[in-house]
Amino acid sequence: MKLYLKIWRQKDAKSKGAMVDYTLDGVEEDMSFLEMLDILNEDLIAKGEEPVEFDHDCREGICGTCSLMINGRPHGPDSLITACQLHMRSFNDGDEIVIEPWRAKAFPVIKDLITDRSAFDRIQQAGGYISVNTSGRPVDANAIPIEKEHADDSFNAATCIGCGACVAACKNASAMLFTSAKVSQFALLPQGQVEAAERVQNMVRQMDLEGFGNCTNTGACEVECPKGISLENIARMNREYLSATLKG
């Protein structure tokens, strides 16, 4: 098939970017979306132009590196997948496809479609852990039975891949879904209780410092999240935060 691409090009963080048009022929439906971009880049290099830079690594939906806004939707038109899992069979011959980077104050563009998401790391550093050392002598793993339901909910929250689609989808560029996923994972486990109050306060404080917006409950994040992280996590984090603040 033949496609008409409109792609955001930006030399570096300081330069101003712009949309550039490309026509690409010979795209097959079995190709993944990123393989389509590979072909475009091979063409561009052959023509002596600079290829389009985009972030990607695992190409199987788990590392959270790929981060493309495709026709106005984070990770493209299909639900519950990342951009690297999107295949060209979701498009038709002659389609126009607009490809942009994540847009958020807290995620500045580095080059073309690549943004700086280190703010997410700093939110995790503020409290996304349980303070245990590797002594080699913790209690036996089965000494702490955990109700399957809680274990499963905790697991579901823990599957967040840190891609940032939730922020890109939100009109306020809020990072509540991402932050609440980590808070929930630990809030649902007995091991996480000791530091619970401190954790939620520190992570939320860091989130605000990074310049993410407020949550106004529009729910766009949940719709676009490739891992189906649920809004319930935000509700849980709000409860955790409230009870932490009440405790002082």
């Binding site: 349980i130 245990v132 913790p138 702490i144 994972q185 630990f186 486990l189 091991q191």
Partner: peptide
């Protein structure tokens, strides 16, 4: 170790 860290 991993269970103590909260690995689900």
């Amino acid at each position: 170790q991993c269970v103590a860290q909260g690995v689900p």
